[in-house]
Amino acid sequence: MIEILPDRCDYCGCCVGVCPEDAIELKEAEIFIIDPRCTNCAKCVWSCPIEVIRFNKEGVQAH
């Protein structure tokens, strides 16, 4: 599963723009992944310039 570290995110929106499933929601100073839409393609992981999106090793997605 993919997770975002919201306390480190600068809300640039790069991840939102590359997500083919529209699975990342950015509202004001809040960002989260819409679990049912996410296919774990990792495009958001590769696009994040400050590396705050990653694979969650425990298999549980954090918000």
Rank of each mutant, 00 (worst) to 15 (best):
Met1Cys: 13
Ile2Met: 11
Ile2Gly: 07
Ile2Leu: 10
Glu3Gln: 13
Glu3Asp: 10
Glu3Met: 08
Ile4Thr: 04
Ile4Arg: 02
Ile4Gly: 02
Leu5Trp: 09
Leu5Gly: 08
Leu5Met: 12
Pro6Trp: 04
Pro6Lys: 14
Pro6Arg: 15
Pro6Tyr: 06
Asp7Val: 09
Arg8Pro: 01
Arg8Thr: 06
Arg8Met: 05
Cys9Thr: 05
Asp10Asn: 11
Asp10Ile: 11
Tyr11Gly: 06
Tyr11Asp: 09
Cys12Leu: 00
Cys12Gln: 03
Gly13Lys: 09
Gly13His: 07
Gly13Trp: 05
Cys14Asp: 02
Cys15Arg: 01
Cys15Trp: 00
Val16Gly: 04
Val16Lys: 03
Gly17Arg: 14
Gly17Ile: 13
Gly17Gln: 14
Gly17Val: 10
Cys19Ile: 09
Cys19Lys: 04
Cys19Phe: 03
Pro20Ala: 05
Pro20His: 03
Pro20Met: 03
Pro20Ser: 04
Pro20Lys: 02
Glu21Asn: 11
Glu21Pro: 01
Glu21Ile: 06
Asp22Thr: 09
Asp22Ile: 02
Asp22Arg: 12
Ile24Glu: 01
Ile24Gln: 01
Glu25Asn: 11
Leu26Ile: 13
Leu26Gly: 05
Lys27Leu: 12
Glu28Ser: 13
Ala29Val: 15
Ala29Gln: 15
Ala29Ser: 14
Glu30Phe: 00
Glu30Gln: 03
Glu30Lys: 11
Glu30Asp: 07
Glu30Ile: 07
Ile31Asp: 03
Ile31Arg: 01
Ile31Cys: 04
Ile31Val: 10
Ile31Tyr: 00
Ile31Thr: 01
Phe32Asn: 06
Phe32Leu: 10
Phe32His: 12
Phe32Met: 12
Phe32Ile: 14
Ile33Glu: 02
Ile33Thr: 06
Ile34Val: 12
Ile34His: 09
Ile34Arg: 02
Asp35Ala: 10
Asp35Ser: 08
Pro36Tyr: 05
Pro36Gly: 06
Arg37Gly: 02
Arg37Thr: 05
Arg37Asn: 11
Arg37Asp: 02
Arg37Met: 07
Arg37Leu: 08
Cys38Trp: 01
Thr39Asp: 04
Asn40Asp: 15
Asn40Leu: 10
Asn40Gly: 15
Cys41Ala: 14
Cys41Tyr: 12
Ala42Val: 04
Lys43Glu: 14
Lys43Ser: 11
Cys44Ala: 04
Val45Ala: 02
Trp46Gln: 13
Ser47Gln: 03
Ser47Asp: 09
Ser47Met: 03
Cys48Glu: 00
Pro49Met: 03
Pro49Trp: 08
Ile50Gln: 10
Ile50Pro: 08
Glu51Leu: 09
Glu51Met: 09
Glu51Phe: 13
Val52Arg: 02
Val52Ile: 09
Val52Ala: 06
Ile53Met: 06
Ile53Tyr: 03
Arg54Asn: 15
Arg54Val: 14
Arg54Gln: 12
Phe55Lys: 12
Phe55Arg: 13
Phe55Ile: 14
Asn56Arg: 14
Lys57Gln: 12
Lys57Asn: 13
Glu58Thr: 08
Glu58Arg: 09
Glu58His: 04
Gly59Glu: 10
Val60Leu: 13
Val60Ser: 11
Val60Tyr: 07
Gln61Arg: 13
Gln61Asp: 03
Gln61Phe: 04
Ala62Glu: 11
Ala62Leu: 15
His63Leu: 11
His63Asp: 15
